[in-house]
Design a protein around this nucleic acid. Structure first.
Lengths: 301, 301
DNA sequence: TTGAAAGCGCTAACAC
DNA sequence: GTGTTAGCGCTTTCAA
């Protein structure tokens, strides 16, 4: 009867509904850099699983800034989202305690947080860096440099540990001059690689610990007119579409990124159902090494 | 006095607030593919401007699917967002009429929509493709192929028109065998390039009309063992970080992506202020050609 | 089966 | 200035 009249512009007010119900079917997802392909793949993983679980995903960008991250979380908590997935800006991230005080389920993904009992889903970064470095050692390289990430980010410090672990295991003395800590961005990678490749005695291989730094490092290698792997061998963390498009193809530590997102979403769904079994639980996924030509042993070796 | 007690877990309820106020300070942004770097740059542009204007941005992914797009818009309208920015799935997109019926401001970005009076911010795609094709013609190439996008997407059809326009202007007869229509994804680009490069008489240059198809096309060129630009010259639409990392560097039609997002957000902010001046307005930004080595004329020419 | 009323947490308006 | 109250649009409950 009234349907005809109603259909001319009527739309249920989800705000009023949520207020009355005291709950929403929305998850908040806070990532630290939306222009980083690693995080967008992660987002896809979360979205795919959220679709299945019946949640809509709202995406916010903390931009690697603790204050912005706090604003994002506050926004989500005030909006009374059902749950939050967060890639924290730093390992000692007090912001992660916010959801607990609002009794909103939180799952931390990709980067570990210390000091707060939390559900976490991460990749075994120590193992990934260890494998990549070992691969270079086994290909005969000895002066292996490392372009690492910030100490205060778990992915940064863990990967550095994996590098040292591999060197130690093969009896190679670590040389501090071969290690550079960067911001995990292109410019940091460019700067670090430029320095490493200009100092004597020169490094014969580099393991680059993140996707954006790899772009910068590769650019530096090109600008210096060096050949890969002839002048310097390369192993990269993260396997992107263009890893196989550059010549030679880049050997890469591939992370199961989408699965990372899916797993986090599955865990969050359980917490939203009130299933607190095993809290705080930590899921660790394994990376895999994709060997291409950038790390090939030279004929002479 | 009570502050101490309140601070132990109290958090304003933004839902109740919004209900009472009858308005939110949130914009919805619906993009068609979150894993496409073009769209993530666009998102950054929107976020930067939204920050300044005092709006939070909620990002949703339509996944190039009309039905998902409708669900995203419905979700946003029911949540009573203050405004919406949309990259529509297709040129005849009836979904874009939804916000109007809820009197929610809408700005369409990147892809045009026909048949509905709407605020739009786009890039001059005809001009971009025209310039890229002309550049190949002026470098001496004559059998220039085109890997185009879907007809039903404005960016697809416009770029194809620019290609034909350049050929016509230089008196080169278009050859239907040299034109392939794809899905604007990697696999489409790979398939199209493989076919083009295997047929006789062989094409001597390809203009690839989108970033993802370029990845696929480049992979095909490599798999066939061909050299660029010796065997085939390349011009790509969209200038990405890795465009300069492949050897030779890719000549590219660069879109002002972030500015696209910023401009759309500025326009939406005006509409949200109730300033309807010039509605429906269309802003068109200009692309620029970045010449690198992939389109260099051969010495013999 | 159908209809009326209470109340979610907040803000704005009004009375004191 | 400080305190009280009405009502945003919905769902749920309870009464007719």
């Amino acid at each position: 009867v009234l349907t005809a009249i109603e259909s001319l512009g009527y739309r249920r007010d989800e705000i009023a509904r949520s207020l009355r119900m005291g709950a929403t079917k929305v998850w908040g997802l806070v990532i630290s850099d939306i222009e980083n392909p690693f995080f967008t793949s992660l987002v896809r993983g979360v979205q795919d699983q959220a679709d299945q679980e019946g949640y809509a995903v709202v995406l916010l960008n903390s931009d690697e800034d603790l204050e912005k991250e706090a604003r994002c979380l506050t926004l989500l908590l005030e909006a009374r989202v059902a749950g939050v997935i967060l890639t924290p800006v730093t390992e000692r991230d007090a912001n992660a305690a916010l959801p607990a005080s609002a009794s909103t389920p939180l799952v931390v993904v990709d980067r570990r947080i210390s000091g707060i009992p939390l559900d976490m889903v991460t990749v075994d970064n120590v193992q990934g860096a260890y494998q990549g470095t070992l691969h270079l050692l086994d290909a005969g390289y000895r002066r292996i440099s490392c372009i690492a990430g910030p100490e205060h980010v778990a992915t940064g410090s863990d990967r550095l540990r994996g590098y040292f672990q591999a060197l130690r295991e093969r009896g190679v003395e670590p040389d501090p001059a071969l290690v550079r800590t960067t911001n995990f961005k292109q410019d940091g990678g460019y700067e670090a690689a430029s320095q490493l490749l200009r100092q004597e005695p020169r490094t014969d291989a580099i393991i680059v610990m993140n996707n954006l730094t790899t772009e910068g490092a590769l650019q530096a290698v090109q600008d210096l007119g060096l050949r890969v792997p002839g002048d310097v061998a390369l192993v990269a963390f993260d396997d992107l579409a263009w890893s196989s498009l550059v010549q030679p193809g880049l050997t890469a530590v591939a992370q199961p990124v989408r699965e990372l997102g899916r797993t986090a979403a599955q865990l969050l769904a359980r917490r939203c159902r009130g299933d607190m079994e095993g809290f705080p639980s930590t899921v660790v996924l394994q990376p895999t090494l994709k060997v291409r030509q950038s790390s090939a042993a030279e004929p002479s070796r």
